[in-house]
Amino acid sequence: MLLDPEFLIVQTLNGLQLSALLFLLSIGLSVVFGLINFINLAHGTLFMLGAYFALSAARAFDSFWLVLLVAPVGVAVVGGLLYLVLLRHMQRADPMKQVLVTFGLIFVGLESVMIVWGPLPHTIDVPALLAGSSSVLGQVYPTYRLFIIALGLAVFLLLYLGLERTRLGAIVRAGVDNRTMVAALGIDIGLVFFLVFCLGCGLAGLAGVVAAPVFSIFPGMDMSVLILALIVVVLGGPGSLKGAGLGSLIIGIADTYGQVLVPELARVTIYALMALILIFKPAGLVPVRSGH
């Protein structure tokens, strides 16, 4: 089976598609964790919210592209409010409290979407432009899934350029390295952090929006991806864009092949892989912090 090129092409593309979603989801989690050591378990809830916002937006607007823009912005706003009302006050709390509060938010999110959108699964259509199939190396593959891969790649490149080529990006990198020193330079690192947090939430929402036409939208759709995203963050090294990219690639591919080749072990392959990598690279694949 492994030597069958058809199988290899399709599964690799499936893996890349999962990688792209994982990257969109984990990058916010990773940078937030890198900047202030804050573990936001409700990050997956924002992914789910993105999918539900897309559902409502798709009913309101005809254009998928408008949905693609509006829903993530909506999620970013929710994330921003969450931060201002609740999470901001948790920054100096001990990690256990952060875990408990953001874990609680998962249930709040779950109940909220059930109240607003009901307990039954929903689906939304693939946009007409991206419906149908394309040929990849002679293999037929859904065009929309290729779009997800391209989007993940595009966001990675945009973030890379933003981080490496702009002053704001330099401030973020400096903040991940040594937040205290950035503040001592007269830079309002709290404000920068807030913007980064909202952007990260928006990207989690974007992941939810693009995932919506592929998977069904249901309360709790966030749980399995949240766990994978957390693994990506730990594996890649918190706060590192390249780490999140590399981690997403590894986990996306490994999870896809693991589920197909050894379905009995399902997610065990992922945990085994994570344990193995952390034995040799305890700070993650791309460690960024030199000290606080």
Partner: peptide, 9 residues
């Protein structure tokens, strides 16, 4: 005292 230089900048 530790100079506060950012490694990646």
């Amino acid at each position: 005292e530790d100079r506060g230089i950012f490694a990646s900048l």
